[in-house]
Computed example of a mutant assay.
Amino acid sequence: MSPEPSPSPSRPPSPGGSYRSTAVVVAAALLAGAVAGGVWALTRDDDSGNRDASGGTTPSVTVTATAPPSDDTGAPQDTLGGSESPLASAYASPSPGFSRSVDGLGFTVDVPEGWTRTVDPRGDKPPVVHYTAPGGDAELEMFELQEPSPADSLDQAENDPSFGFGTRLHGYQAVDREAGTDWAELTYRYDDVEDGPTEVVDHRFTAADGTSYAIRSIGAEGTDVATPSQIAVGSFCPSGAACTVQ
C-alpha cells in the first residue's frame, strides 16, 4: 500500500492532551538479568481479551530468547510462557479495540486488534516493522531513524531529490504539518497505483531512551488514519524505559 520508508524520525498527538515519554533508570541488577537472559516477548493483552482476524480469542504470548533465539529481524519464536513483560507503557492498558505488542525489536506499542506483524529487514538499514489490517487496507510502519533529528529525517524523506516521496508519489499533496523540539509530523495524500487515493500520517520523534523513530499510519483517503497513529505514538515505549502520560 505504501512506498518504501525513507532510509532511515513525535510530537505525541495533541487531541485531548499532550503525551510525553520520560525515561527512568532501571536498576543495574534488572539490566544485568535482562541482558544475561536475553528475554523479550510478544504479547497481545487487554482487559477484555483479544480477537484475531477470524473473531477467536488470542491468548497472550511470551517469547523468550533463552529458548531458540529470534532471527535477525526480531521475529518471535513459538515458545510460550506466562509472565508479563517488564516493559512499561504510557497507558496502563490498551485502548478499546487495540492490543499491546511487546515487539522483538525492542519496544512496546499498542496496535489495532487482529493486525498482523511482519518485518522488512532492509539489509544494513534499520528494519521496518509492519502491522497490517486483515484486509490489507491499512497499516502501521515503525522503524528507527538514522538522521540527526526527527525533523531532518522527515525533511529528507519528503524532499530528497533521489528518494523523496514528495516528488516520487503521483498526486502527492501535503495536508498538514506540525513540529516541536523533539518531533515532527506530516500528513499527506497521494494516488496509489493499486489502492487509489491514500493518506499517511508520518510521525517522527525522539523516544524516552533518546533513540528516534518513525511511526507511519497508512490507509485509504477518507478513513481514520489519525487514531492508530495517535494511540501508537502515545503508547510507544522502548525497552528499559518507563513511559507516562502528562
Rank of each mutant, 00 (worst) to 15 (best):
A174N: 05
S93G: 01
Y91T: 06
P161W: 00
G210I: 02
T181R: 11
S10V: 07
G240D: 12
I231P: 01
Q246A: 11
H203L: 10
V35N: 11
Y190G: 00
T57A: 03
P7E: 03
D191H: 10
G222A: 02
S93N: 02
A241E: 14
G37F: 13
S153Q: 13
L186N: 06
V25N: 08
D202K: 08
Y172N: 04
T79W: 05
V128S: 05
S6G: 09
P9D: 07
R100D: 03
S162I: 13
A226C: 04
A29N: 03
A241N: 09
P68K: 12
A29S: 08
N159L: 01
S149V: 04
V35Y: 14
R122W: 08
L145I: 11
G49P: 01
G166N: 06
E178F: 07
G180E: 07
Q246R: 10
P69K: 10
T223R: 11
D120N: 08
A27E: 01
S14H: 11
Q173L: 12
R11N: 07
T22E: 09
E113I: 02
V128P: 03
Y19G: 13
Q173M: 09
P112E: 04
S14D: 11
S18R: 12
A179C: 03
M1L: 12
G171M: 12
G33A: 15
Q146C: 04
P228D: 13
S10E: 05
S235F: 13
V26M: 15
A67V: 06
A36Y: 13
A23D: 14
S18I: 12
Y188K: 01
A36N: 10
V193A: 15
V24F: 15
A67M: 12
F163Q: 13
T43I: 13
T187G: 04
S229T: 06
P3E: 04
E141C: 04
A208V: 07
P150W: 07
T64V: 15
A242N: 13
A133P: 01
V129L: 03
G104N: 11
G210L: 03
G196P: 01
